[in-house]
């Protein structure tokens, strides 16, 4: 299966990209995507993740076609 991974704001700069397609084994979780893309670096303090536009936990399992996003604490308003 394939998921789309997106990064925003300072995390996009740190990762050096804004989005990518990633082939995965079924049942892969959000945390294992992060680990695979960063060589097991911890997530930055306060960083957030979302699947299909809803906030999620790192344990969330993914399905084919999901859009996963990683981003720093939000600063709108």
């Amino acid at each position: 299966m394939t998921v789309k991974v997106r990064f925003f704001a300072s995390l996009a700069e740190t990762m050096g990209r804004r989005e990518m397609e990633l082939p995965l084994e079924p049942g892969t979780t959000v945390s294992s995507i992060w680990a695979a893309l960063t060589a097991d670096k911890p997530m930055p303090q306060g960083a957030l993740c979302a699947v299909n536009h809803d906030y999620c936990t790192l344990e969330q399992p993914l399905a084919d076609g999901d859009e996963v996003a990683f981003f720093p604490p939000v600063t709108g308003g």
């Binding site: 925003f8 704001a9 981003f71 939000v74 600063t75």
Partner: peptide, 11 residues
């Protein structure tokens, strides 16, 4: 709540 949950970032 907007300031804590809406995905906006200021540079």
């Amino acid at each position: 709540e907007l300031k804590h949950s809406a995905p906006f970032w200021k540079k």
